[in-house]
Simulated assay, not measured.
Amino acid sequence: MRLDIEDLSVEVAGARLVHDITLTAAEGQVVGLVGPNGSGKSTLLRCVYRALRPAAGRVLLAGDDLHALGAREGARRLAALPQESSAEFDFTVAEVVAMGRLPHRRRGPGTPSDARAVCADALARVGAAHLAERGFLSLSGGERQRVLIARALAQQPRVLVLDEPTNHLDIAHQLDVLTLVREAGPTVLAALHDLNLAALHCDLLYVIARGRIVASGAPHDVLTPRLLAEVFGVSAHRVRHPRTGAVQLLFDRLRDQLHDQEQEHRP
């Protein structure tokens, strides 16, 4: 399902944090949103999954205004994994994942066998099937994150919004999660902190700074040393991944590079 964000602006407590953002994620694409802390990534995503309402502009799913859809229909089309998720009650892992089936649930008690199968499959895909009967609050941060990703997959959305989905995950699970969400097939819009993971897994990147899109395109076109110095304040050295050929980055502090240049030109 195609996702379009058109001229979107977001205000919080009277301050405009996101300005006139337009972006597109075509059906089945994995689109990354990258930028420094405080740039507006999470604010934008909260508007996309309807935790906030836009001050201006629209979020469209296959041409339909998301904010005009009913809650149930919206949840059938779009699932979200926020950056911070909390639980006050100690549900089992199986119960947490089953919450992903609520938008599809028919009236009446119990969980249909087909829904249980979907949930079991989602847990297996994130490597958490052995946690099904554990209390959610007893899990480590990485285990909780995998369970929440399983819940989003169990929802079987057409569009999946992820805010820093690799938080708390070890490197193996970071690689696995971004691979499996692509294999699951939805259109994905993800805010990512790790630029190398973004370069490996995203079809397109949008770079956001001070609430505005400042660059967009394929990762190898966007992640240039000049842009990374201007937006992130770092010196970047580009290399190629030996297997995939994707651009990967090695970083230095920008001040160290400037110091080295000064030393080279000193008589």
Rank of each mutant, 00 (worst) to 15 (best):
E6C: 06
D7H: 14
L8V: 07
S9P: 09
V10W: 09
E11M: 07
G14C: 11
G14H: 13
L23S: 12
E27S: 14
Q29W: 02
V30K: 00
V31H: 01
G32P: 03
G35D: 12
G35A: 11
N37Y: 08
N37L: 02
S39W: 04
G40V: 02
S42E: 14
L44E: 01
C47M: 06
R53Y: 04
P54T: 04
P54D: 09
G57D: 13
H67S: 11
H67Y: 11
A68L: 09
R72E: 13
A75I: 04
A80G: 12
L81I: 06
L81T: 06
L81V: 14
E84H: 14
E84W: 03
S86H: 15
E88A: 14
F89E: 13
F89A: 09
F91I: 04
E95S: 07
V96K: 06
V97M: 07
V97H: 13
A98Q: 15
G100T: 07
P103C: 03
R105I: 01
R106A: 12
R107H: 11
P109N: 14
G110W: 12
G110F: 06
P112I: 05
S113V: 12
S113C: 04
D114G: 01
A115R: 08
A115S: 15
V118M: 13
D121F: 04
D121P: 00
A122C: 07
L123C: 07
L123A: 09
R125D: 04
V126Y: 07
V126E: 13
V126M: 12
G127P: 05
H130C: 06
A132T: 12
A132N: 12
S138K: 11
L139T: 08
L139C: 10
V147R: 08
A152M: 03
Q156F: 03
Q156K: 15
R158L: 07
R158Q: 15
V161D: 01
D163L: 02
D163C: 02
T166P: 13
N167H: 11
D170V: 08
D170R: 11
D170P: 06
D170Q: 10
I171D: 07
A172N: 14
V177G: 08
T179L: 01
T179D: 07
V181T: 07
V181P: 12
A184Y: 07
A184M: 08
T187A: 11
V188G: 03
L189C: 09
D194S: 06
L195Q: 10
N196I: 03
H201Y: 15
C202Q: 02
D203C: 01
D203V: 00
L204M: 09
V207R: 11
I208G: 03
R210M: 05
V214R: 14
A215Q: 12
G217K: 06
P219M: 08
H220S: 15
H220L: 02
D221I: 00
L223N: 09
T224E: 10
V231A: 10
S235F: 03
A236E: 05
R238T: 10
V239R: 14
R240F: 01
G245H: 07
L250N: 04
F251Q: 09
R253G: 00
Q261F: 10
E262P: 01
Q263W: 02
E264K: 13
